[in-house]
């Protein structure tokens, strides 16, 4: 039973990272109606930037991470402004392909700017594990889970309770109508890109101590955040977040009780099966298209 809880806690920790990344995906999907395939790569690049801030500029961790998130926001805004909205008649398919091109660009840039070697990245808190009824929890893990929960709570409060949130949700439900009602739709998508990129950056910085900073560090997080968004349903904000934790925990339990090697393939197969039965995900609604 102790092992069970140990796995669950581990799952919540990785689930937190998926949740941050999938929240970024859904923010952009809802407001701009495209899938940002470069979410993970941008996060990876920002982890390199953060490493650079710490190693080259000698910044302390508590300053470097927010600074990197700030740069990420700027980067996201620039991408939205100069690439996604560079032309009026650009199709959403082209926009998605631009995000694919961004993967190549930043995977090429990272080793050019920061070198091809793996760089270790220290944890936020290096204190040793706490023992709670036999379950060992690193303070760093608690911090990751805590930060994620705080950010999610803040985002949900903004989305549900503030005028800014209303603007985002109105844009999500119908950009044309939102524009006619005076909502600055362009600014909303710009903001979504900025926030999403910052979330990706944070997820990458959290992964960095586990995997070192490499070009491929975000690959599995990125893929799992996609799967979480599919499982939770792209049409809600909370669905993917809940699904992220489900995937994190389920992956750990399958890995522990069945097989480490095959836990992810099994999980994907299960989710694929689930999608056949419930195409819009756990919490999703059917999207009715206007003709």
């Amino acid at each position: 039973m102790v092992e069970f809880f140990q796995q669950v806690v581990g799952g919540i920790e990785t689930g937190s990272m998926y949740a941050l990344a999938s929240m970024g995906l859904v923010l952009i999907f809802q407001t701009a109606k495209i899938i940002n395939f470069s979410q993970g790569t941008l996060g990876m690049f920002m982890a390199y930037v953060c490493t650079g801030l710490i190693l080259e500029l000698q910044m302390p961790m508590w300053a470097a991470v927010p600074a990197a998130m700030g740069i990420a926001m700027l980067l996201g805004a620039l991408i939205d402004h100069f690439l996604m909205n560079s032309k009026q008649n650009i199709t959403n398919l082209s926009r998605e392909m631009i995000t694919l091109a961004l993967i190549m660009i930043f995977q090429g840039l990272a080793p050019m700017l920061f070198g091809a070697n793996e760089t270790p990245f220290s944890k936020f808190i290096s204190a040793s594990a706490l023992d709670i009824g036999g379950v060992k929890i690193l303070p760093n893990s608690l911090l990751i889970i805590g930060i994620t929960c705080a950010i999610m709570a803040t985002l949900f409060i903004i989305l549900e309770k503030t005028t800014l949130g209303v603007a985002v949700r109105a844009t999500a439900s119908n950009p044309q109508t939102a524009r006619l009602q005076g909502i600055p739709v362009k600014l909303v998508t710009l903001g979504s890109w900025a926030v999403a990129t910052a979330l990706g950056c944070l997820a990458a910085v959290m992964v960095a101590p586990l995997k070192n900073v490499t070009v491929s560090m975000m690959d599995s997080i990125h893929l799992n955040s996609f799967i979480a968004a599919v499982l939770g349903g792209f049409s809600t904000f909370y669905g993917p977040v809940v699904a992220s934790f489900i995937i994190g925990i389920a992956n750990n339990l399958l890995g522990y009780y069945v097989s480490t090697k095959w836990s992810l393939p099994m999980l994907y197969a299960l989710i694929l099966l689930f999608i056949v039965l419930r195409p819009n995900g756990l919490f999703g609604k059917k999207i009715v298209k206007k003709v």
Partner: peptide
Amino acid sequence: EIPGLPLLIVGILMIIILIFYP
């Protein structure tokens, strides 16, 4: 000698084509 340069160029080329010369 520069690592990652071909990848970078292909990515940039792709964006230029998508936006300006579809």
